[in-house]
């Protein structure tokens, strides 16, 4: 399945949070969405998982306008990892992961054996199987994040939308998650803050600035020092990765530099 944003705008209380954003996520590819805080990344994603209705424009999934699909039908083919979506109630990890089957079940219908297995596999993949019986509220931020990703995987989506999935994760789990996404064959739209990880994992990157698409292209085309200077307001050096050849960013702290000069 492919995902397409077509001139999506979000206007809340007269403030234009997303400004005619058009973006293609081709089938089976990983598209990264990057940009500074408040550039409209999360707002754009909320239009895709139907938490927000775009003021103008439309989101298309497999050539179908999402507005014509029920929320339930939508959730059967598209899963989302939202930010900070924990419950106040102390559900166990296994219970939370099982909720990922909700779009496929009627009311309180029980999970089938296949679905139970699916949950175990997803917990195994996200390395939370050993936590299955633990209460969610007793887990660390990174463990919680992995549980929520496992829940999204259990939805058996064709399209996966992830809002900062590497948030709270340690390096090993960040790398494992992104390589899992690469292997999965899913159509993925992912918001990332780490531009190096984005360069390593994405087929295509869209850069958002003030709600509008600043530029889009392959990591090599997009990640340039002038672009980063303009959008993020920092100076970076860019070199090719010695093994993969992907562009990698090196940051220097301005204070450090000036200190070195004075010494």
């Amino acid at each position: 399945m492919d995902l397409r944003l077509d001139g999506v705008s979000v206007d809340i209380n007269g403030k234009l949070l997303v400004d005619s954003l058009s973006l293609d996520v081709p089938r089976g590819q990983i598209v990264g969405l990057v940009g500074p805080n408040g550039s409209g990344k999360s707002t754009a994603l909320r239009c895709i998982y139907r938490s927000l209705r775009p003021s103008r424009g439309a989101v298309w999934i497999d050539g179908q306008n999402m507005r014509s699909l029920s929320l339930r039908a939508n959730a059967q083919s598209l899963a989302a990892l939202t930010q900070e979506a924990t419950s106040d109630l102390d559900f166990t990890v296994a219970e939370i992961v099982a909720l990922g089957r909700a779009p496929h079940l009627r009311g309180n219908e029980r999970l089938s054996q296949r679905e139970e297995r699916l949950c175990l596999e997803a917990m195994e993949q996200m390395d939370v199987l050993h936590l299955a019986g633990r209460g969610m509220l007793s887990l660390s931020g990174g463990e919680r994040q992995r549980v929520m990703i496992a829940r999204a995987l259990v939805q058996e989506p064709k399209v996966l939308v992830l809002d900062e999935p590497t948030n709270h994760l340690d390096m090993r789990h960040q790398i494992e998650l992104l390589s899992l996404l690469r292997r999965s064959g899913l159509t993925v739209l992912v918001v990332l803050h780490d531009l190096n990880l984005a360069a390593a994992s994405c087929d295509w990157i869209g850069v958002l600035s003030d709600g509008a698409l600043h530029c889009a292209g392959t990591p090599r085309e997009i990640l340039t020092a002038p672009m980063i200077r303009e959008v993020f307001g920092i100076d970076v050096s860019i070199v090719d990765h010695p093994l993969s050849g992907q562009p990698q960013l090196f940051y220097t702290l301005p204070t450090q530099q000036s200190q070195e000069h004075t010494q």
């Binding site: 998982y49 938490s51 419950s87």
Partner: peptide, 14 residues
């Protein structure tokens, strides 16, 4: 159960 995770999570689960 799903409601307690907030409106966004609910929407993403249909």
């Amino acid at each position: 159960d799903i409601m307690t995770f907030g409106d966004e999570a609910a929407a993403s689960l249909g």
